[in-house]
């Protein structure tokens, strides 16, 4: 009866506190919960023992001389044995989980290559010509391999519901396996301090069914078409104001790599790694004064007149 009760409590807490949206997170959270039970037990024993001892052996003002009592030395051996046994158990549990969720990636082709930049994410899809930024689309229902690189300082990939983190380190290649269970939007954040806008380097993953994912990839291989005249003048301003030195837009002369790829910026739901909703108003505010919205970001203020900004916004908003 009691076991059953504990069993229910265990799974209730496991599922309500730690959300596991990948099989990797499931394994980590299961191990985490075993640990939390063991740790709570140790803490309970220490707390109860402390309270018992300080209550029982508190000083009494009764004038009698007290005789110190001594604990048997045998306890000492037990106190080495019990923690050591716990260490051994958790060591083997750790080995098992660790090898399960992060097997070697030797020679395997990654599904997505993610590069960290100060303060945004680039996602390339090998085998296609697709490069996305900030909103990272991933397929559900199969195990995928992410390759993690950095263009500048150390960043760290972490979507809490996906489980493990992994650093993106300049000069190194790191890998991460994921098997996302359900489609949906998952958010996370860069977790290694990377400079002024570390806090503004959020992660937004769009997990999709395989069919939708493939459809998305195909759409993004196309070049966006613009018909509107305002947008067309925006395209010219984009060139003349040197926006293309940092940003890439497929099918145009703009091929910069320092800033996020804008080929399909209008198809994203958010701007600036998920800080703002993607709409014309926010895009205007951003182009007017980037440092006001995300101080420390590498996009400079261009001092453009209102007409140019409107044209640029019209252009970017049509890049579906």
């Amino acid at each position: 009866m009691f076991e059953l009760f504990l069993y229910h409590i265990h799974f209730y807490l496991l599922n309500s506190i730690l959300h596991s949206s990948t099989t990797e997170a499931e394994e980590i959270n299961r191990l985490h919960f075993y640990f939390l039970w063991a740790a709570s037990f140790v803490l309970l024993v220490v707390t109860v023992a402390t309270i018992y001892v300080i209550y029982k052996y508190r000083h009494h003002e009764n004038g009698q001389e007290y005789q110190p009592k001594t604990l048997s030395g045998k306890w000492e051996i037990a106190m080495i044995g019990v923690p050591l046994a716990m260490v051994v158990v958790f060591f083997f549990l750790m080995l098992k989980t660790m090898h399960h969720i992060l097997p070697s990636a030797d020679g395997k082709k990654p599904d997505v290559v993610i590069t960290g930049h100060q303060y945004w994410w680039e996602a390339q899809y090998p085998g296609t010509r697709v490069t996305a930024a900030n909103e990272i689309h991933l397929p559900v229902g199969r195990t995928i391999l992410l390759k993690l690189l950095s263009a500048d300082v150390i960043h760290d990939w972490w979507v809490p519901q996906f489980g493990n983190k992994m650093d993106l380190i300049s000069g190194r290649q790191n890998y991460l396996w994921l098997n996302i269970k359900e489609p949906g939007i998952y958010t996370g954040a860069c977790s290694e301090f990377c400079g002024a806008q570390h806090a503004g380097m959020r992660i937004r993953v769009v997990a999709q069914q395989e069919s939708e994912y493939i459809k998305w990839l195909q759409e993004h291989q196309q070049v966006a078409t613009i018909s509107d005249t305002l947008a067309q003048s925006g395209a010219q301003i984009f060139q003349s104001e040197t926006c293309g030195n940092c940003h890439n837009i497929n099918g145009t002369a703009s091929n910069g790599k320092a800033g996020p790829d804008l080929s399909h910026i209008a198809s994203r739901q958010t701007l600036l790694t998920g800080i703002l909703e993607n709409n014309k108003e926010n895009l205007t505010r951003w182009i007017q004064d980037p440092q006001k919205i995300k101080p420390g970001a590498h996009m400079p203020k261009f001092f453009l007149d209102k007409h140019s900004i409107d044209a640029l916004v019209a252009y970017l908003s049509s890049l579906k």
Partner: peptide, 30 residues
């Protein structure tokens, strides 16, 4: 390094226990 780090818990646990053992049977002044 995971194993070596876990092992730190053992000597530290010994210390906590010995401090408790020191108070045990004493005449504690708060």
């Amino acid at each position: 390094f995971g194993a070596s780090s876990m092992l730190i818990g053992v000597p530290t646990g010994i210390k906590i226990f010995n401090w408790l053992g020191t108070m045990y049977g004493g005449s504690i002044r708060f």
